[in-house]
Amino acid sequence: SRSVIRSIIKSSKLNIDHKDYLLDLLNDVKGSKDLKEFHKMLTAILA
């Protein structure tokens, strides 16, 4: 869910600018399909 993804971003080791950017992107995501794609992208970034 959106709140879980937000929590993953906030607890990541990324610097604050990257976190803010990803949180802004997350706010722009519409629909469950796009949310799944965003989660895939985030997982790849944090891997």
Score class of each variant (00 low, 15 high):
Leu42Ser: 00
Ile45Thr: 06
His39Asn: 08
Ser12Phe: 04
Ser3Asp: 15
Lys33Asn: 12
Arg2Cys: 04
Lys30Thr: 08
Glu37Arg: 14
Lys36Val: 10
Leu46Cys: 03
Ala44Thr: 12
Gly31Ser: 14
Ala44Cys: 06
Leu46Arg: 02
Leu23Phe: 05
Ile45Phe: 07
Ala47Gly: 09
Asp34Ile: 04
Asn27Cys: 05
Asp17Ser: 11
Ile16Lys: 15
Arg2Tyr: 06
Val4Ser: 10
Ile45Leu: 10
Leu25Met: 12
Ser12Thr: 03
Ser11Met: 07
Met41Cys: 04
Lys36Asn: 08
Lys33Asp: 13
Leu14Val: 03
Phe38Ile: 02
Leu42His: 01
Asp34Glu: 15
His18Trp: 08
Arg2Pro: 06
Thr43His: 09
Leu35Pro: 01
Asn27Pro: 02
Leu23Asn: 04
Ser3Thr: 09
Met41Asn: 05
Leu22Val: 01
Leu23Thr: 04
Ile9Ser: 00
Lys36Met: 15
Asn15Trp: 05
His18Asp: 13
Thr43Leu: 15
Val29Pro: 03
Lys10Ile: 14
Asp28Tyr: 11
Leu42Lys: 00
Lys10Val: 13
Asn15Val: 05
Lys36His: 13
Asp28Ser: 13
His18Val: 15
Thr43Trp: 12
Leu35Cys: 03
Leu26Gly: 00
Phe38Leu: 03
Met41Glu: 06
Lys10Ala: 12
Asp34Trp: 06
Asp28Thr: 14
Val29Asp: 02
Ser12Leu: 05
Leu42Ile: 12
Ala47Asp: 11
Asp17Gly: 04
His39Trp: 15
Met41Trp: 10
Leu26Cys: 01
Ser3Ile: 08
Val29Tyr: 06
Ser11Pro: 01
Val4Phe: 06
Leu46Ile: 11
Glu37Pro: 03
Ile9Lys: 00
Phe38Trp: 03
Glu37Ala: 14
Lys40Cys: 05
Met41Ala: 03
Thr43Gln: 12
Asp34Met: 12
Arg6Met: 13
Ile45Glu: 04
Ala47Leu: 11
Arg2Asp: 09
Ile16Phe: 08
Leu14His: 00
Leu42Phe: 04
Leu22Gly: 00
Asn27Trp: 04
Val4Pro: 04
Lys19His: 02
Lys19Gly: 01
Leu26Arg: 02
Leu22Cys: 01
Ala47His: 09
Ile5Thr: 03
Leu23Arg: 03
Leu23Pro: 00
Ile8Glu: 05
Ile45His: 07
Val4Gly: 09
Gly31His: 08
Lys33Thr: 09
Leu35Asp: 01
Lys10Leu: 15
Asp24Ser: 15
Ala47Ile: 10
Arg2Lys: 14
Asn27Lys: 15
Tyr21Cys: 06
His18Lys: 12
Leu14Ser: 00
Ser3His: 13
Ile16Pro: 15
Ile45Asn: 02
Arg6Gln: 13
Lys10Tyr: 11
Ile5Asp: 02
Ser1Thr: 14
Phe38His: 01
Ile9Thr: 00
Asn15Thr: 15
Asp34Lys: 11
Lys19Ser: 02
Leu25Gln: 07
Ser7Glu: 15
Lys19Val: 05
Ser11Asn: 14
Ser1Phe: 15
Phe38Met: 03
Lys10Asp: 03
Ser32Arg: 10
Leu46Pro: 01
Lys40Trp: 03
Arg6Glu: 15
Tyr21Leu: 09
Phe38Ser: 00
His18Tyr: 14
Gly31Ala: 05
Leu46Asn: 02
Asn27Thr: 04
Lys19Pro: 01
Ser1Trp: 15
Lys10Gln: 13
Ser7Asn: 14
Ser3Lys: 15
Ile8Lys: 08
His18Gln: 14
Met41Leu: 07
Ile5Trp: 04
Gly31Thr: 14
Asp17Phe: 07
Asn15Pro: 15
Val29Gln: 06
Gly31Val: 05
Asp28Ala: 12
Asp28Leu: 13
Ile9Pro: 02
Tyr21Trp: 09
Asp17Lys: 15
Asp17Gln: 12
Asp17Ile: 08
Ser32Ala: 13
Ala44Gln: 11
Glu37Ile: 13
Lys36Pro: 03
Ala47Lys: 11
Leu26Lys: 01
